[in-house]
Design a protein around this nucleic acid. Structure first.
Lengths: 237, 237
DNA sequence: CGATCATTTGATGTAATTCAAAACTGGTGG
DNA sequence: CCACCAGTTTTGAATTACATCAAATGATCG
């Protein structure tokens, strides 16, 4: 199967972008939704490895991911990369930058990625009159605060399983876990994000495969025994 | 020196609570600030070990920490505790709960802790007319998203140093690092939060002490060589 | 189709966990 | 006020699990 291009997947997402999609259930009127869509500045496509912005860049826009995936990273003075997190379709980049007015991380495309640019000041202006939008912005920031629970697990295997389940859930949003999916990031990125060596990720996934809990072929994952995986992730050995 | 009680420290904080304090620089008028102060529902004191709320409790209030400290935890089915984070004076609990309408974690007082309850619906209502408040709520959520960078370090020592510097900075807010301070949490909590064993925390801190980088007596810390500590935390060995 | 990058797999060393016990705290009541 | 007790922290020794190094295999892309 050839790799899907971002443009192929757009049909399955909303007409404009993730933000308007998520504003839909917030009870915006037709008119309000049209206002929001009119606010979208650019729709852009980034290729694998391209940089959306750098740390220190002045914060002007949210980036709503329509298709693809990016990683959020910093590079310290010793040249070591730090993977802070990932953004998947439907997720919005930029909340970390509000308090300082500057983006704190580099955002780098992991695959071909399609995004919408949403000017922050316009959104704030608009949310004065559209109270649903005001709540929605806080709700999206709120989601982001609880999205990354796998980090906090002490046990290594738990962390990896929780990460896989996390990505699976985020790729399916409303509808529970996605059983079959492709990991958009490398083992290296996963390891860096979870504080583990790339090889350890590889070995743990292999171990889960041998136990028959999941099928895996490089970056494609099929969750076979979801209840068992959930049990392991929550610490029931 | 006897341990300070929460009530002793209140004089050094704002007249009402952390939220109004942080709204001050946002350009609220006298009138707006009075409205905000009127909105504060309760001021309460919790003793060490008391629970502010449990996971699943219906989200109604933000809790602004005036003095003291709390930890944010969950307990999984196997009975293992997970420390997600800490809230120090000036920080506001509740943003994680906006999207689901329920608090995701237990909040437990680590020392005697004084808080303000701020009803969420009232804040939202008020921010319709006070745009500074609207921005301030997003800015506080934004801060929270970037507050916990120490988690992401791969190297163990880096994680511990970054944690200490993080707490030091948060205890001093605007004015850089606090050189002398007390850790409000146990070694056990630090270890759990950083994904390390309690003994490892103890040993690493001891090691830093022997190197003359800091002075430590149980929970009291004095940072002696801040530039060196910063360099170690950012990966320059 | 060959070059490059990503992943897997194996062998080895080391660093962190675990288990255990001692030292130190803070709090309580005699 | 001092002695005792529970909880916390420190320290030590042994084990285990993870990182590291290295090489081979497998994808991907020009």
């Amino acid at each position: 199967m050839p790799p899907k291009k971002a443009t192929d997947q757009l049909q399955t997402t909303c007409a404009t972008c993730a933000l308007t999609q998520f504003c839909l259930p917030m009870g915006l009127t037709e008119r309000e939704l049209k206002d929001l869509e009119a606010l979208v500045k650019h729709r852009r496509i980034f290729s694998r490895g391209e940089i959306l912005h750098q740390p220190g860049d002045f914060f002007q826009n949210f980036y709503a991911i329509r298709a693809g995936a990016v990683k959020s990273v910093t590079i310290n003075t010793a040249g070591n990369e730090q993977v802070f997190g990932f953004y998947l379709p439907g997720e919005v980049i930029g909340f970390e930058a509000i308090s300082t007015q500057k983006y704190p991380h580099s955002i780098i495309a992991l695959t071909e990625t399609s995004i919408c640019e949403l000017p922050f000041t316009h959104l704030m202006q608009m949310s004065k009159t559209h109270s649903g939008l005001q709540h929605q912005l806080l709700a999206l920031a709120s989601q982001r605060l609880t999205i990354d629970t796998c980090i906090h697990f002490t046990d290594t295997q738990q962390r990896v399983i929780a990460f896989l389940l996390n990505v699976s859930a985020r790729l399916n949003r409303s509808a529970g876990l996605k059983r079959i999916f492709d990991l958009p990031m490398s083992r290296h990125d996963i390891g860096n994000h979870l504080g583990l060596a790339m090889e350890t990720i590889s070995r743990i996934i292999h171990h889960l495969k041998r136990q028959g809990l999941l099928a895996v072929h490089h970056r494609s994952i099929e969750l076979l025994k979801i209840p068992a995986l959930k049990a392991l992730a929550t610490g029931n050995k």
